[in-house]
């Protein structure tokens, strides 16, 4: 009997039922959440530290930091700053100009290419082309920059001359002096080549989400591919494509090395895109950083902050559009 009683006593008490995670899970969840927050923390820290360094410049210069188009600093023999004028107006114009050219050229090519990949190519050709374009998206900007400078420049300069000759009556195609090398036009084309793989793959993803039943319904009603694309694919993917184009815009605005190598960075507002002078904020930072004193570095930090906020806004908008319109059919 004693043995049996022992047995009965040794049966463990029923476990308490609870939905509370165990200690190990609590730690796990805490660590993972901490890791998950890293993107928020890093983005916050970038904004914070660039502000700490740059905010006094923004306070001193006020709104003229954005509108002013001069970047001058005068120092005495002890490297004390006597007088300074910092304004990124010209570079802001240059950033916009090159990025808009890139979009203007790159986006139609990307959309047409994505249409080809989604609705015309098939089998091995498609797989090959898709991986080739993905590969191109992984090319470093350095490569695009020096290829643009050594190889692409000659052709692009020739095209610029042609445009100037035949369309020169339009103000933006005029040039003050016939210097066509290293112009915003050429930089914009190089940026276009850089964003094509990105915009193509996003457009392809958007097109792939078009509901198959609607595509087949259109074909069943006797649509050709053109009418099917116009009636189903484009209305469906419009927002997503705009989002993809904006992601390309974000990349084009923040590009440093390719613009620095291809473009003749000159600190002046230049709207005439065929003329060989211009720049963007990122290339300004790279150009001025080498010889900048402490005070000027702070100004460059402020410029970096503006660039950061600008690309952040563009990326947020792009992401919003891609997600809002891209997932509708799933």
């Amino acid at each position: 009997m004693a043995l049996l009683e022992d047995r009965v006593n040794s049966v463990p008490a029923p476990r308490e039922l609870t939905t509370k995670p165990r200690r190990s899970d609590q730690i796990f969840r805490f660590v993972v959440t901490l890791g998950g927050m890293s993107s928020l923390v890093i983005l916050g820290l970038i904004a914070l530290f660039l502000s700490i360094k740059g905010i006094h410049i923004l306070n001193e210069k006020g709104f003229s930091f954005i509108t002013e188009s001069r970047w001058e600093v005068v120092t005495d023999e002890n490297q004390e700053v006597i007088q300074s004028t910092f304004g990124i107006g010209a570079m802001l114009v240059g950033t916009m100009l090159t990025a808009v050219i890139a979009l203007f050229v790159g986006v139609p090519i990307s959309i047409l290419g994505a249409l080809y990949l989604s609705f015309y190519a098939s089998g091995r050709v498609k797989t090959f082309l898709v991986s080739l374009i993905d590969l191109m998206a992984a090319f470093p900007s350095l490569l695009f920059g020096f290829w643009g400078f050594f190889v692409f420049m000659d052709s692009a300069e020739y095209w610029a001359k042609l445009i100037n000759k035949y369309l020169g009556f339009i103000p933006i195609f005029q040039v003050p002096t016939p210097i066509f090398e290293r112009s915003p036009f050429i930089a914009g084309l190089v940026l276009a080549i850089m964003i094509i793989p990105i915009v193509t793959s996003i457009s392809r993803e958007i097109f792939a989400q078009t509901p198959l039943d609607r595509i087949q319904a259109a074909f069943a009603l006797g649509a050709t591919r053109l009418t099917m694309i116009r009636a189903v694919v484009i209305p469906y993917g419009r927002g997503g494509i705009v989002g993809g184009a904006m992601l390309g815009l974000g990349r084009a605005m923040g590009e440093t090395v390719a613009v620095y190598t291809v473009l003749n960075v000159v600190y002046a507002v230049n709207w005439q895109m065929l003329f060989g002078a211009g720049g963007n904020i990122a290339s300004l930072i790279l150009l001025k950083f080498g010889e900048a004193g402490a005070y000027e570095v702070d100004a460059l930090m402020a410029a970096g902050l503006i660039l950061f906020l600008l690309t952040l806004v563009v990326n947020f908008a792009a992401d919003f559009l891609v997600n809002r319109f891209g997932k509708r059919g799933r």
Partner: peptide
């Protein structure tokens, strides 16, 4: 985990991939 923060975090990761590389350099400097 798929917590309540999933959507904003996905959003922020996407935004982070668009940070210009020179800004990353400036951030480490500062």
């Amino acid at each position: 985990i798929r917590g309540t923060l999933s959507r904003p975090i996905r959003f922020l990761v996407q935004a982070m991939s668009g940070v210009p590389s020179i800004v990353a350099g400036l951030f480490i400097l500062s």
